[in-house]
Write a protein that binds this DNA or RNA. Structure first.
Lengths: 222, 222
DNA sequence: TAGATTGTTAATCGATTAACAATC
DNA sequence: TAGATTGTTAATCGATTAACAATC
């Protein structure tokens, strides 16, 4: 990467970060067929505009070549670097229920750059079990704090029952966790300096249901 | 519900629909402790503003009482009605892999108002299997079209490999499906009149990773 | 009636888009 | 050089917020 990726002083909107992940998804596909892409073609695949694409990408540096477009492989490298997935990021998984065990046995859903290094559950039946897919033995929740500190873990996937979500999240933060992927349908409240991203399939089904029924409505934005 | 819920002529932004699902998540929790809530308290729980809350809710009718606030139970009823989850919505599930079987055996993730009525897979090993959790026998993908038409299904969860996602989605639309919850990390392209909502855990992990590393950056919006 | 809080309009803010000079 | 397409500025558009009259 010759050009520097720099955004330390910039304001970044959460919308743009979401779009960066979408560019990457598309570029992985495009890379199978093309070496180059220009802002318009990428915009069409994004259901967006060429101006938006150029603006987004230029936030982090000058990665295109005037008259030529963008090099797909280089752009992938750059976006992966921006998102910090050009190296392995360690995660712990808390909650080894249906959702948790699906993630462990199906590591493809985590995508590039992430690795579950330990699994915790409070259920005595599950503690000591060897996980399917990874060579990990499920540990008890009481060992969580020690593990996080010892191995300097800073990110966790929260896949417990929603009733426990808030309490467990708080506990994780106390142990030093800085980012939580919340897979429960509970809105957890944590200090501003902790990153929380939620994935709620039931909420997404609700959105889908709304738009399926009202697709005729003037859908603004996006 | 005395007041009419009406939004046939209104422009609705996708952002607002997302917020509606978030209000609902919060109200389910609030309903355990309170009968009433005002726009400011709801806003605080949303990390939003009272004006935003009132504006959002007033889009669909007048549901509050001046000087009093909103009735929690009534608001839940209204939002459920807006999202169309005050009745059961039938879904078929396509793809009975790790993700698909997790959804079937763990129906709580679907939330209120949704029901998987049939499961399809192309894998001969899986066809004929009785699903864990539901009393459903996995059908072959070749029976999909007939089933959709016969039972008038209009919504599907797509949980196949991302390599097949586009082709299967197209096929579903051809059979009459109007809404797809896309659980693959592939951006499917379909006609404008088909509702598609995607849930991509790997993309969300990327966002989380970004914000965890750059939480100091001036995060705008949201 | 006084106090509280909604619903809504107008003002502000931020994000997207159009346009074009820069340059490969 | 001519053509293509970026990076960026200024204009537009849409979404959020402030303010307040309405009203319980």
């Amino acid at each position: 990467m010759e050009k520097k990726v720099d955004f330390t002083s910039k304001d970044i909107s959460s919308r743009m970060v979401t779009r960066i992940t979408e560019y990457l998804t598309i570029l992985y596909e495009v890379s199978k067929y093309e070496k180059k892409i220009n802002s318009l073609d990428l915009a069409i695949k994004m259901d967006s505009t060429a101006a938006q694409v150029r603006k987004d990408l230029s936030t982090f540096g000058e990665f295109g070549v005037r008259g030529r477009g963008y090099d797909v492989a280089k752009l992938i490298e750059i976006l992966e670097h921006i998102l910090g997935i050009d190296k392995k990021n360690k995660l712990i998984l808390v909650g080894y229920g249906k959702m948790g065990s699906m993630l462990v046995s199906n590591s493809v859903v985590l995508g590039k750059g992430f690795e579950i290094v330990e699994v915790f559950d409070k259920d005595k039946e599950k503690i000591g079990q060897k996980t399917e897919g990874l060579d990990i033995i499920v540990k008890g929740s009481d060992e969580m704090d020690e593990y996080i500190r010892k191995y300097n873990i800073n990110q966790a996937i929260l896949a417990v029952n929603k009733e426990e979500a808030q309490a467990v999240a708080k506990q994780l933060v106390k142990s030093g966790i800085k980012g939580i992927l919340n897979l429960t349908a509970f809105k957890i409240e944590l200090p501003r300096e902790i990153a929380v991203i939620s994935v709620d399939i039931s909420a997404k089904l609700q959105e889908l249901n709304f738009w399926r029924r009202h697709i005729d409505i003037n859908k603004k934005g996006e």
